[in-house]
């Protein structure tokens, strides 16, 4: 029996699924309220659509980072780390100023999800616009079954992945128009249809999915170099490529061939 909650924050649907001891009682409702409060606070702090957010005030030169709460420096540091690790393809610095939204979403949902850690004996899955944190309460709880949307036919799925404890994020262009750019060239990447990344941390999964999408043709090689990630790349032509360090380990006898080369032969 799964109990579901939906609300809207940051212009995105926030979906929650609960199973177990606390699904529709007061403590579940309190945790849901608390999680939404965390998301709304992140939106107030970082939204590029809110003139009074710290990000907009930074961009207008009214503040410096040291004037802001420590969360601002934390998010900008994550963005800088991602820029270095993606060889410049991911960058929160834009011509028009800072736009840390590629970092904030995963980071905020990961923080919000902690509200449900307090629900004893309860499994949860918290999703913001398709990026989510999954947890199960014990060794006998079944995994959450997460469908990965087909970027070419959003009413269908390309894959399913079971997640007990972990996070999943998908990046692509097919829902919101051209919102990802390759910061090295300033252009919209066209080689890929979507990138899905699983990782222990939603912050990292979300950053990696966006960075890989920006890397375009280099995405698969880059993702395979990242420890602790598994996932799926769907190319613009519909080719599907699964990646993951566990795959590499488990197919060590053939690993020199590489999944990327298999898929392009």
């Amino acid at each position: 029996m799964t109990t579901r909650y939906v609300d809207h924050v940051m212009g995105m649907p926030i979906s929650l699924a609960l199973r177990g001891r606390h699904t529709d009682d007061d403590v579940a409702a309190q945790a849901w309220t608390q999680a939404l409060d965390v998301l709304r606070a992140a939106d107030r702090m970082f939204s590029t659509y809110r003139a009074d957010s710290y990000v907009c005030r930074l961009n207008r030169g009214e503040l410096t980072v040291t004037d802001c709460p420590p969360e601002v420096a934390e998010v900008l540091a994550l963005g800088e780390q991602a820029r270095c690790e993606s060889h410049g393809a991911f960058d929160v610095r834009r011509a028009a100023g800072l736009d840390p939204s590629g970092v904030v979403k995963g980071w905020a949902v990961e923080r919000a999800a902690h509200a449900f850690d307090l629900l004893a004996g309860t499994d949860y899955c918290l999703s913001a616009g398709g990026d989510m944190v999954c947890r199960v309460a014990g060794p006998n709880s079944p995994a959450w079954r997460i469908g990965i949307e087909d970027p070419h036919a959003p009413d269908k799925l390309v894959a399913v992945v079971p997640i007990r404890n972990g996070a999943i994020a998908t990046s692509g262009l097919h829902r919101r128009g051209d919102h990802i750019i390759d910061a090295r060239t300033g252009t919209t990447p066209t080689a890929l249809a979507s990138v899905t990344v699983m990782h222990r941390s939603l912050t990292q999964a979300d950053i990696d999915a966006t960075a890989a999408f920006a890397l375009g043709p280099d995405a698969l090689t880059w993702l395979q170099s990242r420890p602790g990630r598994t996932g799926l790349v769907v190319l613009a032509d519909g080719t599907r490529q699964i990646f993951g360090d566990s795959t590499r380990e488990m197919t060590s006898s053939t690993s020199s061939r590489g999944m990327g080369r298999w898929a392009t032969k």
Binding site: P13, M132, I146, G147, E149, H174, R175
Partner: peptide, 15 residues
């Protein structure tokens, strides 16, 4: 497919 949730490129509240 008996799934619990869907991961996809950012769904807006409108979509």
């Amino acid at each position: 497919s008996q799934i619990d949730m869907v991961s996809g490129a950012t769904v807006t509240s409108d979509g």
